[in-house]
Design a protein around this nucleic acid. Structure first.
Lengths: 215, 215
DNA sequence: AACTTAATTAAACGGCCGTTTTAAATAAGG
DNA sequence: CCTTATTTAAAACGGCCGTTTAATTAAGTT
């Protein structure tokens, strides 16, 4: 029984690493079981299928991140009458850091997984997220609207997805971009620094004045 | 000889469509040759390999887009002493529209191809682009710097890639997002409208004031 | 017209994929 | 200690992949 959990965990740990590095579909079960040093068939024994393994990996992070996000949003709307866009956005930082409890490099892993999940299994992840954590997502959106009363909801919807795209792209190609930045500007950029640079960018973009419709 | 060009073109047309819909690695040569109604082996005969086909597809669009972008940038810096961020960004619109001359839906196809190219073949596309059109990219960056003298170069580098990520993400998941937006807000969103919504977002993000380093 | 070159075709190659089946080893319960 | 599940292990399954081969057809040249 104790050994069994070991095997299952070894698969999860290896799968998270390889999925976050190469994406879901580009990672084969043979790569995962080789990295985990377990037998190929044990994946299907413990998880049923590759798709189920992917879901298990994602669910493990979502189940930690989403409740933590809900708590942050609750504290924000409780303690402040007038919320600012940057404060709502900042609510995602602590839950991200909380992912260290599932894995030391959990925050980075989760963001990269999210990026691949969005580009590879399109609507699937969104459907799962909305079904299980729809209220949290909805509350996040409401707070963003509250912070930007002069921007129409439809525009905010798009701008939030632009922001998501900026974050996921930056994370997915983070390593390559940081190398280029280092060779162009001489300074090293840390992975977490990227997220800090992102916040003012998306905060300004979300709150930008809507252009004249006659241009 | 006339028939030969037909086959080669039929492959290109089918490949562009399927690549832009499902990505490069997810699209098999058998899908392409089936869609094009040509023999499987003709891809390797006319292009040499799948990788060469991908490069041919991308090069066809880049060779139209990049010179057109260079012309726009030249006109901008020639006619205005003080350039604004939104004007530099607007320089990409006409070259995008010019892609209609390679295919009716060229602009959309090109952006989606770009998105997959960045996420799937990471450094490869960037290397190719810089080797062939490095000066144009560099001039674009210079104009952005010129328009934002108060933002340091390194920050602008990251913000431009955030912008690229926002655009590519919006295009890659454009169809799904537009469906969601339609069901949530009742109005249909056109594909081109998405790009217009993007401009003020990234313009504001790029020009955002840099935050205090002590936060 | 015959001949040379180019283009198309059908079939097969080796390789990796996710999954399943088989049997052996291990742990748990009576 | 023996029986019964549970877990690991190795091998094979069918399927799709990119690529190559060899034979056939079409086009171009003198």
């Amino acid at each position: 029984m104790a050994k069994a959990l070991r095997t299952k965990d070894k698969i999860i740990v290896a799968a998270e690493k390889l999925f976050s590095e190469h994406g879901f579909e580009q990672t084969s079960l043979r790569q995962i079981t080789s990295e985990a040093e377990v037998n190929l068939a044990s994946v299907n024994y413990h998880f049923g299928s590759k798709k189920a393994l992917i879901q298990a990996v994602m669910a493990r992070y979502q189940s930690v991140f989403m409740p933590a996000l809900a708590e942050q949003l609750y504290q924000l709307q409780k303690n402040s009458e007038q919320v600012a866009t940057k404060d709502v956005l900042a609510c995602v930082m602590q839950p991200l850091i909380a992912l260290r409890q599932v894995r030391i490099d959990g925050p980075v892993i989760y963001l990269r997984l999210l990026g691949y999940a969005y580009s590879e299994i399109q609507g699937h992840l969104r459907k799962y997220t909305m079904a299980n954590y729809g209220e949290i997502v909805h509350e996040f959106f409401q707070l963003i609207q509250q912070a930007n009363p002069n921007v129409c909801s439809k525009t905010l919807f798009w701008r939030l997805h632009f922001s998501l795209g900026a974050m996921l792209f930056a994370q997915t190609s983070s390593q390559a971009l940081r190398e280029i930045a280092a060779s162009d500007f001489g300074e090293e950029t840390q992975a977490e620094e990227t997220l800090l640079k992102l916040l003012p960018f998306v905060a300004a973009g979300i709150s930008a004045a809507e252009p004249d419709p006659k241009s």
